[in-house]
């Protein structure tokens, strides 16, 4: 087994109308790493994420997850390894109660009903929403929905968590609580986001995407200190690294 848990090699992808979305992306991610993928709108972040669980098939290039080269034969194993949390929890929570939703993945993977129940209870307890077990998802707040969405992949015990904009639409406190929750996970994390302050809190490494290519890949603080790179990628420094607007001192 290679020590790289995610390996993307020269990944290219065109949409059916020939719009190029990825134009040769390569990177490697090790066990337990927490990596942010940042970039302007339309830079290719979401398209990249959809390759990591085999929803999209590369036009060219390779994706390797753990021991598996991503092919139609291994896609089931890959999806078990990669837990994907979507941006809009309403897309992810499609069953009529929280319990059924969190049980959906484990049931598909063929666990026994007792096993499934135990997994669901554990996942719900981990994200702190055990009391919502029997509620219909459409009556939860966005913060609660997000937690349930995370529980719905945790219940499959994935090695890698892939998240698309996990902090979007949350109030400041719910956002802080979510960051604390994600910090407590030991999974390999890949987070696509515009919330650069969250990146500072969660990810030691950042991959910057621009126009379907990786324009930088390195330690988060180094990348966020590079004004020229950020400007070229249509990004701005995280707020806490900018000067204080009231006392005018440099941060």
């Amino acid at each position: 087994m290679s020590h790289h848990i995610v390996e993307v090699k020269d990944l290219k992808f065109h949409y059916p109308d020939q719009t190029p979305a990825l134009r040769g992306v390569s990177f490697q991610i090790r066990h337990g790493e927490s990596v942010a993928i940042v970039g302007a709108n339309g830079a290719g972040k979401s398209t990249l994420l959809l390759h990591l669980n085999g929803y999209l098939t590369p036009t060219d290039g390779q994706v390797r997850i753990g021991d598996y080269q991503l092919t139609p034969e291994t896609v089931r194993e890959v999806r078990r390894t990669v837990g994907m949390v979507f941006q809009d929890p309403d897309d992810q929570l499609f069953m009529s109660t929280v319990f059924d939703d969190v049980a959906f993945g484990p049931l598909n993977l063929g666990f026994t009903p007792e096993d499934v129940t135990a997994r669901v209870e554990k996942a719900l307890a981990t994200v702190g929403v055990s009391h919502l077990k029997n509620r219909p998802p459409h009556r939860l707040s966005t913060g609660q929905k997000r937690r349930v969405a995370i529980a719905s992949v945790l219940s499959m015990s994935p090695d890698i968590l892939v998240m698309d904009e996990p902090s979007a639409g949350l109030d400041p406190r719910a956002r802080t609580q979510l960051i604390e929750l994600l910090k407590s996970f030991e999974h390999t994390k890949i987070i696509a986001t515009h919330d650069l302050d969250m990146v500072v809190d969660l990810c030691e490494r950042t991959i910057v995407m621009h126009d379907g290519l990786v324009s930088a890949d390195g330690p988060t603080m180094e990348i966020f200190s590079d004004d020229k790179l950020l400007a070229a990628s249509c990004l701005e420094k995280p707020l806490r690294m900018q000067g204080c607007p009231i006392c005018r001192c440099k941060g």
Binding site: Y55, R79, G83, M84, F86, F94, D100, F104, L107, V116
Partner: peptide, 15 residues
């Protein structure tokens, strides 16, 4: 997409 990424095979199971 969300269903597929949770190992959906065409049948919805409920306990």
């Amino acid at each position: 997409m969300a269903m597929l990424s949770r190992a959906f095979t065409g049948e919805i199971r409920i306990v």
